[in-house]
C-alpha cells in the first residue's frame, strides 16, 4: 500500500484566490465559518465527495486553489441547500459552491469532459440561442461530449419517455430570440460584479 503525504505547504497557497474567496460574501462573512461540519453532515452527496463542504471551505479560505477547483465536490453539489439552511453562521454555502463552479469554468480548471460542466455549458448555450431548453437535445449533446458509454443504462428510460409522449423532438424556441440574446450580452459588458448572497 502506498500513501501520499496530506500536508500542504505554504508555496501551494494562492493568496489572490483566498482574497477573492473571502470577498464573495458581504462583510467577510466567510471568515465567520467555525468549521463545525454541519454542512458536510447534512450534505446528501458528501459520501461521494473527495472533500466535503467543510474541508472545501477551509481550503478555500487558506487559498489552496488547486485542491478546491480540482475537487469533485463542486460538481457533485446539486444545489439542494441542505448545508445553507443548517449553517449556524448563516453562510450561503450553496451560493459559494456556484461561485466556485464559475471560477473553475472561467479559469479553465473544470475537467474538459466532466459531465457536469459539459452539461452546464451545453445548457447555457442552448438557452442563450433559443431561450428555451429542449431536454432530449441537451441529453444527446451531453452523451456525445462526455462519453456515450456512460449512458447505455439510460436507453430504457428514453424509450419509456418516448412511449408515453413525454419527449419533444422539436427544438423549442421563444419568439423574441434576438431580444433575449441581446439582453444577455448587454449585462455581460457591464463591469459590475454581483456578490454572492
Amino acid at each position: 500500500m502506498t500513501t501520499e503525504p496530506m500536508i500542504r505547504s505554504e508555496s501551494d497557497r494562492d493568496p489572490e484566490f483566498a482574497a477573492w474567496f473571502t470577498s464573495l460574501v458581504e462583510e467577510e462573512k466567510l471568515r465567520e465559518c467555525i468549521h463545525c461540519g454541519v454542512c458536510s453532515g447534512n450534505c446528501p452527496l458528501a459520501s461521494h465527495m473527495d472533500l466535503g463542504p467543510r474541508k472545501l471551505m477551509a481550503l478555500s479560505r487558506q487559498g489552496f486553489a488547486e485542491d478546491v477547483l480540482g475537487s469533485n465536490t463542486i460538481w457533485l453539489c446539486t444545489s439542494c441547500y441542505a448545508c445553507t439552511t443548517a449553517c449556524p453562521q448563516q453562510i450561503p454555502v450553496t451560493e459559494v459552491m456556484y461561485a466556485l463552479k464559475r471560477r473553475a469554468i472561467e479559469t479553465g480548471k473544470a475537467p474538459s469532459r466532466h459531465p457536469v460542466p459539459v452539461m452546464a455549458k451545453g445548457f447555457t448555450k442552448m438557452v442563450h440561442k433559443r431561450g428555451r431548453l429542449t431536454e432530449a437535445y441537451l441529453i444527446a449533446g451531453l452523451a456525445l461530449k462526455s462519453g456515450i458509454t456512460r449512458y447505455i443504462g439510460m436507453v430504457g428510460v428514453g424509450i419509456n419517455a418516448l412511449r408515453t409522449g413525454r419527449v419533444s423532438l422539436k427544438l423549442d424556441s421563444i419568439e423574441k430570440r434576438d431580444e433575449l440574446s441581446r439582453l444577455l450580452d448587454a449585462v455581460d459588458d457591464h463591469s459590475k460584479e454581483v456578490s454572492v448572497r
Binding site: 444545489s79 456556484y98 464559475r102 447555457t124 431548453l133 457591464h190 454581483v194
Partner: peptide, 22 residues
C-alpha cells in the same frame, strides 16, 4: 406570453449576471 427558460441550476454555474438577466 413568450416566457423563456429560468436558467435552472445550470446557468448560475456558468454566468451569474446573465442568469439573473435571463
Amino acid at each position: 406570453d413568450d416566457w423563456n427558460c429560468c436558467g435552472a441550476t445550470a446557468y448560475m454555474a456558468v454566468d451569474e449576471k446573465k442568469a439573473v438577466a435571463l
